[in-house]
């Protein structure tokens, strides 16, 4: 593999995978929670929460990145709080890239999970309650397994989005080799240097393969899981 990809390119691919994986894993629990709240609860400010979640989808990514920089930068309120409390700084680090990727992928994830939770028949949840099951148990044993196809789809969409995220990432954490230079940033950087078109092309191919692979895996998983969930 390293024979075909140069060390710099390989570094970008490994970093992208790490960023995307963490972004997906860490946004899954809040993603499921927000999706459930939007699907099942009625509360004041629901419309606003929905708007806030979807904002990164509509805003120019540069704006999202800039907002993150203002919040989590060395001078930003959250950045300073993190630094003071845990000694952590995420601006210009790969962790910041993961945060940016997670936020950009969040609307896609929440949307997919919300739709699948809405498709779970609430009458099944009511039936589980009449059998004596507490709410949280009903959620874990009825709602969650029945919504699993949508949760998988949401996670894979968020992963693919994280692999390809560029605008917010480069604005928030810049383009530091080995630290924040993910595949899209690397392609961009290679295209700025004369004679590096070969490296750019190889990363383009990697991007296409990963994206296509993610879609195929998501489709296959969703089919298998929904067949099992429907009980046929």
């Amino acid at each position: 593999m390293t024979g075909w990809l140069g060390p710099e390119e390989w570094q970008a691919v490994a970093l992208s995978l790490r960023v995307a994986l963490w972004a997906t894993v860490l946004s899954l629990p809040p993603g499921i929670f927000v999706a459930y709240a939007l699907a099942r609860w009625r509360f004041p400010g629901k419309l606003w929460l929905n708007g806030l979640v979807h904002l990164p989808l509509i805003l120019p990514p540069v704006v999202t990145g800039y907002l993150l920089l203002m919040l989590f930068g060395a001078q930003g309120p959250l950045g300073r709080a993190l630094e003071a409390a845990f000694g952590i700084s995420i601006a210009f680090r790969w962790t910041g890239a993961a945060l940016a990727a997670a936020i950009m992928g969040f609307p896609l994830m929440v949307r997919a999970i919300r739709l699948s939770i809405e498709a779970v028949d609430p009458r099944l949840e009511a039936a589980a309650e009449t059998l004596g099951a507490p709410r949280l148990w009903v959620f874990a044993t009825i709602t969650l397994p029945l919504a699993l196809p949508g949760i998988l789809t949401g996670a894979i969409l968020a992963f693919a989005k994280a692999m390809g995220e560029f605008g917010a990432t480069i604005t928030f954490v810049s383009n530091i080799p080995g630290q924040t230079r993910t595949v899209p940033s690397a392609i961009y950087a290679f295209l700025q240097v004369p004679g590096a078109e070969g490296a750019a092309l190889r990363l383009v191919i990697v991007s296409i393969v990963v994206a296509m692979g993610a879609l195929l895996v998501s489709e296959l998983l969703a089919r298998r899981v929904s067949a099992r969930v429907r009980g046929s």
Binding site: D121, A127, L131, G231
Partner: peptide, 20 residues
């Protein structure tokens, strides 16, 4: 709450859990 009533309920549409 329903979960603590110990009242069995057989629904018109059975409502079996399809994944179990």
């Amino acid at each position: 709450p329903a979960a603590r009533r110990r009242i069995g309920y057989v629904f018109q549409d059975a409502r079996l859990f399809p994944h179990l």
